[in-house]
Computed example of a mutant assay.
Amino acid sequence: MTSFDLRDLGVTLRNREVFRNVSLTISAGEMVGLIGPNGAGKTSLMRAALGLVPHTGHSTLAQMSARDRARTVAWMPQSREIAWPITVERLVALGRLPHLPTTGTIPAKDRVLIDQAIDRLDLGSLRLRAASRLSGGEQARALIARAVAQDTPVLMADEPIAGLDPAHQISTMRVFRDLADEGRAILVSIHDLGLAARHCTRLILMAEGGVLADGPPAQVLSPELMARAFGISVWHEYTASGPIFQPLEVVK
């Protein structure tokens, strides 16, 4: 089942064309990694897909009303500053706002989703702590939990594992993959190509003003494409523990 699609999408910001003619479909059950060098347009693509920046072309999500979009897609931007002195539990509960009755009370079924999101992101010991007093990595996990609690068919996250320690990078990617396996469509931008190789079902490589490659990780992470897009050499091997991918050197 198709969760959303983009047709001939293009973005120009401050008189600079970021990308053009991007067409793609993200389907339920996919864990899609959006990769590419800095400035390739990964963030702009995600924001344009949500209708948050001016764009040309068509996005099914951007055409929705704000309320319908909030019930369809959970969005986690790069910005992670939490300014409100509320508990982690209350912060995660904000993910349920698009679904709550006008009374503002939280039904029991919503509380279950909140508790599940807290557990999935290993936040049980922090649930009563003020979110604004957490470390940067802990705040990131709390915001991911809020997006998970939103319980939408689509989840989009812009560099969600940046700043997390290795254990929580891995566990967070596993959470996203589990959500995809449960039938959601997941789109995450990511710079760690090793984790992308291990956890994503599909990669979209943005470079040279558009989508340079789109397919399974083994196909997109080829030495030729990595040299062309990033200017790097790579080592890629399949092991009993799964695929191992390592950037090696900058090449000219």
Rank of each mutant, 00 (worst) to 15 (best):
M64L: 13
S65F: 08
F230D: 00
P54N: 02
L205M: 06
I204S: 01
R228I: 06
A180L: 01
L61T: 02
I114H: 04
Q139V: 14
L193I: 13
L225K: 04
G41N: 07
L50I: 01
W235A: 15
D8I: 15
E182R: 06
A218M: 12
K252E: 11
R16C: 08
R198I: 11
G136Y: 07
E89D: 11
E182D: 09
V220D: 00
E138P: 13
R174A: 05
G33Y: 10
L121H: 07
V53N: 01
E81Y: 10
K252G: 08
G124N: 12
A162F: 10
A157E: 01
H99I: 09
E208H: 05
V73G: 02
P85C: 07
R69M: 00
H191P: 08
T72R: 04
L164T: 15
D110M: 14
C200D: 03
L113A: 10
T102W: 13
G104E: 07
P247G: 11
I186C: 04
G210F: 02
L94Q: 06
R96Y: 01
E159Q: 13
L221T: 12
G39T: 07
S3Y: 02
S59M: 06
A40R: 02
G39I: 07
V53C: 02
D214W: 00
L52Y: 02
R177G: 05
